[in-house]
């Protein structure tokens, strides 16, 4: 019996309409619609698209949680063995919707989920860890390349065959590390790699470093005497007892604490939640990590306009880049809303 697949597409690929129909609410149709036809051929009868979910890109983007849970309910009765979304090429909202649905389906049904996107689609950065995303060209002209590659990978996953490395299989790196056995010892492979590098030959690292984004330097503060300065730290400083239970490592949250009227952090009132450095010194005097005392003095002397009445804190200890990014974005939002001029960020 063929494996059962549910396919997700947007209003455009379903032939319903373009931007003017992007508010189209989710619906499910039995069988293939639009690009599903191409998949039908590429799956060679080994798997079958039993139903197609159609949802407008704007509708999904503005009602993500609601749309995802409605679609999950629609899919359930079709008992899928795998889920295909897109391909979305370089369409941002479509890619985000495909990624979000892959994540939701994978969580709910525990089945393989696969999409296809151009590497710069924002859906890639957001969801590559949750789905197999096959690399595609940037427009629908690449459909003929994308479909066979996606079909091949989904069949492998359905049959439980081993999936090779991203470069061999054509999917975008998921950040998964796998232990492998090699004939050559690590030391030998390392020296080989180094020699290749010296010779200017191509070589492939066995462990890529994460890529961090860059931001342009912000302009200098012109008027420090009237500036509102905020303190933010990854050193885990928090009110004694860590009331919000910020984790000692791999933090999943940050804290916001009011320091109105606080002129000095003492061992009676503040401590650190951080589990990655010796807490003795921070617990004795948290100003050693979050310099509230000095900034109060500078505020009194008129060197700065004001110390912001809230500080933000998390634990930077094995904390994922994704979480840190999320904290950063949310903290910045709040600081900007509160009219903060500049931030001093301390890290341990």
């Amino acid at each position: 019996m063929a494996f059962r697949i549910v396919h997700y597409i947007n209003q455009f690929y379903a032939g319903i309409g373009g931007e003017e129909k992007a508010d189209y609410k989710p619906e499910i149709r039995t069988g293939v619609v639009g690009p599903g036809m191409a998949f039908k051929g590429a799956l060679k009868g080994e798997a079958e698209i039993v139903a197609t979910v159609i949802c407008g890109d704007s509708y999904f983007a503005s009602n993500m949680d609601e749309a995802a849970s409605a679609i999950i309910d629609m899919i359930r009765e079709y008992k899928p063995d795998a889920f295909i979304a897109g391909p979305a090429f370089n369409a941002g909202r479509y890619g985000t919707a495909c990624g979000a649905m892959c994540e939701a389906v994978s969580k709910e049904f525990g089945i393989p989920v696969i999409s296809g996107m151009y590497p710069e689609n924002p859906g890639v950065e957001m969801y590559r860890k949750h789905a197999w995303i096959v690399e595609t060209p940037d427009s629908a002209a690449g459909m003929r390349k994308a479909v066979p590659a996606m079909a091949k990978l989904v069949l492998k996953l359905l049959k439980g065959e081993a999936v090779g490395r991203p470069s061999d299989e054509g999917y975008i790196e998921r950040g998964i590390r796998k232990n492998m056995f090699y004939e050559k010892l690590a030391a030998e492979r390392c020296v080989d790699m180094f020699v290749s590098k010296l010779k200017g030959e191509t070589f492939e690292t066995e462990y890529k470093m994460p890529v961090f984004d860059r931001v342009d330097p912000q302009p200098a503060v012109k008027d420090m005497k009237n500036a509102v300065i905020a303190l933010v730290t990854s050193g885990g400083i928090c009110p004694k007892g860590n009331p919000d239970h910020i984790e000692a490592s791999s933090a999943s949250k940050f804290g916001e604490y009011d320091i109105t009227g606080v002129n000095d952090l003492t061992s009676e009132t503040y401590c650190t939640a951080h589990g990655g450095y010796d807490a003795t010194y921070a617990d004795q005097d948290a100003d050693r990590v979050l310099p509230v005392d000095v900034l109060r003095d500078l505020e009194k002397e008129g060197v700065i306009g004001k110390l912001h009445n809230k500080f933000y804190t998390t634990v930077g200890n094995g904390t994922s880049v994704a979480n840190a990014k999320r904290f950063g974005a949310e903290i910045v939002n709040r600081l900007v809303n509160d009219g903060v001029t500049a931030v001093i960020l301390t890290s341990t």
């Binding site: 010796d278 010194y281 100003d287 050693r288 990590v289 310099p291 000095v294 900034l295 500078l298 301390t346």
Partner: peptide, 22 residues
């Protein structure tokens, strides 16, 4: 463990050090 302090100094010296860094 103490980016803005130095426990081997007296509290007064430490605060001067912290202020210079800030």
């Amino acid at each position: 463990p103490h980016p803005l302090g130095n426990p081997s100094k007296t509290p007064e010296e430490e605060k001067i050090l912290r202020r210079s860094l800030v």
